[in-house]
Amino acid sequence: MSKRVLIVDDAVFMRMMIKDILGKNGFEVVGEAANGALAIEEYKKVDPDIVTMDITMPEMDGIIAVKEIRKIDPNANIIMCSAMGQQAMVMEAIQAGAKDFIVKPFQSERVIEALNKALG
């Protein structure tokens, strides 16, 4: 059965791009959210196998959203997908509970590899 993914990114374009990559590689995109606060609501609603999470977003950033989602579901699989690749930011995301960190711009293979690794 294909794995169910929630995509969180404030840019419609980036959500479409990730959706396209995932669709071509056998994943099912079950939800999308444009900021951290909406991501929490969507996570409760669709209960995905894995989440791709941007960091720089309006309303609530991705790192706070990871912490909040992990409070609801301590086993949540979340991988960060952000252009903010500096070490302090990566560490903060991992400490918040993210399983991996993809730096934008990315290649589609890197996204698939990260998702498969996080899903074990």
């Binding site: 404030d10 840019a11 419609v12 374009f13 980036m14 720089t56 952000s82 252009a83 903010m84 690749g85 500096q86 070490q87 302090a88 930011m89 730096v103 934008k104 711009p105």
Partner: peptide, 25 residues
């Protein structure tokens, strides 16, 4: 929307490089 993402990617990478230069976030 695409320009926003372009600016996010360009700026995010720029911030990473600057942080490496100043050893601070």
């Amino acid at each position: 929307d695409f320009l926003k993402e372009l600016s996010n990617i360009g700026g995010g990478n720029a911030a990473t490089s600057l942080s490496q230069m100043v050893y601070r976030p």
